[in-house]
């Protein structure tokens, strides 16, 4: 780990991070606002139209209960895009992007072991992801307080929800970083990382919209971030273990491959 590099990675991302953190916070608040203002109207619509009801079951969430709304909020494409900027984009560029830019060459001319570089990038990005997940949940907590929904929520379960969210996005970060460590150009690294994210998302959403394909959700990492279950006090430790394994396996691969790779002169 290099403290100097860690601080610099954060400084480079600071403006973007502040903007995305605020956006995530506002989104968390907005979701609870919408829930408190429109859930009853949506419920009426759902009763009248079974097709509409089916479409309100987005991912593992819905708009009929506060825990369903929170789950929906954590799986909404907007949140995926916001957190994905760092967890997928940032991680995929952390090595391959610096390689192509030629700046990795200058950094690795210092007494900085490659593993240390990789772990520092991982910690820096995970810290950003942790902040974003915290901002999302904080926004929801503020929304619950301002909309008078605290009676429906056990805020003491938010830390566990944060940990589950961090593990989910940590898995995508770890995978993207491993891909980044394996390529010299950012194009393939971003492409593969994004594909991994989208396939997981597709499997989760497909199962939620189409009952016959519900089994596909089991194969999605998003299905193992169950805010609703945690809020209901039914957190499954297997979800945490599985996500942790998906963090560790790509990380182990990255730590193995990166020091062994030849880093030819950038084009």
């Amino acid at each position: 780990m290099s403290g100097v590099l860690l601080v610099r990675v954060w400084r480079f991302a600071s403006t973007r991070l502040v903007i995305v953190t605020l956006a995530t916070l506002v989104w968390g608040w907005l979701l609870l606002f919408f829930y408190s203002q429109f859930s009853e109207a949506i419920r009426q619509l759902a009763v009248q139209s079974p097709i509409f009801k089916q479409f309100t079951n987005f991912g593992s969430g819905n708009l009929f209960t506060i825990s369903g709304a929170i789950t929906l909020g954590t799986q909404h494409p907007l949140v995926i895009a916001l957190i994905g900027i760092f967890a997928v984009g940032g991680a995929a560029l952390a090595i391959a992007g610096e390689r192509q830019a030629g700046t990795l060459e200058v950094l690795l001319a210092r007494p900085l072991p490659r593993r240390s570089y990789l772990l520092t990038q991982l910690v820096a990005i995970l810290a950003m992801v942790a902040l974003l997940v915290a901002a999302l949940l904080s926004g929801m907590a503020i929304g619950a307080v301002t909309q008078g929904l605290t009676g429906e929520l056990d805020l003491a379960r938010f830390p566990l929800m944060w940990l589950n969210g961090l593990l989910l996005w940590g898995a995508f970060t770890s995978f993207s970083l491993a891909v980044s460590a394996s390529f010299d150009r950012p194009g393939p690294a971003i492409g593969l990382s994004l594909a991994f994210l989208l396939v997981n998302y597709f499997l989760e959403i497909l199962g939620s919209f189409w009952t016959d394909a519900k089994w596909t959700q089991e194969y999605s990492l998003f299905h193992h971030f169950q805010s609703g279950e945690i809020l209901a006090g039914k957190a499954d430790p297997a979800d945490f273990v599985l996500l942790l394994a998906v963090v560790l396996v790509p990380l182990g691969y990255a730590l193995w491959i990166f020091p062994r790779r030849d880093l030819a002169a950038p084009a």
Binding site: F12, G102, T103, E105, V106, A265
Partner: peptide, 14 residues
């Protein structure tokens, strides 16, 4: 690398 100074060809900096 601790004891060395290196100037790459066509150096790229931030």
């Amino acid at each position: 690398r601790r004891k060395t100074g290196y100037l790459p060809g066509g150096i790229a900096l931030y």
